[in-house]
Simulated assay, not measured.
Amino acid sequence: MSNIVKKDGYSYSFDANACSTCKGKCCTGESGYIYVTKAEIESISKLLNLDIKDFVQEYLFKKLYKYSIKEKKFGENYECIFYDRESNGCNIYDARPLQCRTFPFWDYFKQRVDELKLECPGVIDV
């Protein structure tokens, strides 16, 4: 079954089948920010069956005026606190933030396709 995703304005496509063998490169690596909105905080809290206040305290940190999901250290790298190495998946997949849902179709990568290909084996030229 074809899982090729295309998006207008991007010079590449994405083969979602690559996720099964990739080892979560989009969820691991260098430290970064995974920003969440108020609505996303509410959705993730509900999915985890946690009070919003408890969720924020345990899983988020504030960066200026935004909240970001915490990371955990793994060897020399970092990974999203919700990345599950055993299943090679996301523990909050059904409520994951927009930033995660839209990867690899970020404006940042429009002019950096070679950089993106190093991170994501599912990226293919059109």
Rank of each mutant, 00 (worst) to 15 (best):
S2Y: 06
S2G: 00
N3Y: 08
N3E: 11
N3P: 02
I4D: 02
V5H: 00
V5F: 02
K7Y: 01
K7G: 01
K7T: 02
K7A: 04
D8A: 12
Y10T: 09
S11L: 14
S11Q: 12
S11M: 07
Y12K: 03
F14V: 04
N17T: 14
N17K: 15
A18G: 04
S20D: 14
S20A: 15
S20L: 15
C22Q: 10
K23N: 15
K23Q: 15
G24T: 09
G24C: 11
G24L: 09
K25A: 09
K25Y: 01
K25L: 14
K25W: 01
C26K: 04
C26V: 08
C27V: 10
C27H: 04
C27Q: 03
E30I: 07
E30G: 10
G32M: 05
I34S: 09
Y35D: 07
V36D: 10
V36L: 13
V36H: 03
K38A: 14
A39M: 11
E40W: 07
E40Q: 11
E40T: 06
I41R: 08
I41K: 09
E42C: 07
S45Y: 07
S45F: 07
L47M: 14
K53F: 12
D54A: 15
F55C: 07
V56A: 11
V56D: 01
E58D: 13
Y59M: 06
Y59A: 06
K66C: 07
Y67S: 03
S68H: 02
I69P: 02
K70V: 04
K70W: 01
K70G: 07
K70Q: 10
E71H: 11
K72S: 02
K72L: 00
K73H: 02
K73C: 00
K73V: 13
F74P: 01
F74Q: 04
G75L: 08
G75R: 08
G75Q: 04
E76H: 00
N77I: 03
N77M: 00
Y78N: 09
Y78G: 02
E79H: 12
E79K: 13
E79N: 00
C80H: 01
F82Y: 02
Y83V: 03
Y83A: 05
R85V: 13
E86Y: 07
E86A: 12
S87H: 10
N88S: 13
G89V: 04
I92K: 04
I92Q: 00
I92M: 11
I92T: 01
D94L: 14
A95G: 03
C100M: 04
R101D: 12
F103Y: 14
F105A: 05
F105G: 02
W106N: 06
F109E: 03
K110I: 08
Q111F: 11
V113K: 13
E115T: 10
L116C: 03
L116N: 01
K117V: 08
L118G: 14
L118Q: 11
C120F: 05
C120M: 06
C120I: 06
P121D: 08
P121A: 01
G122S: 05
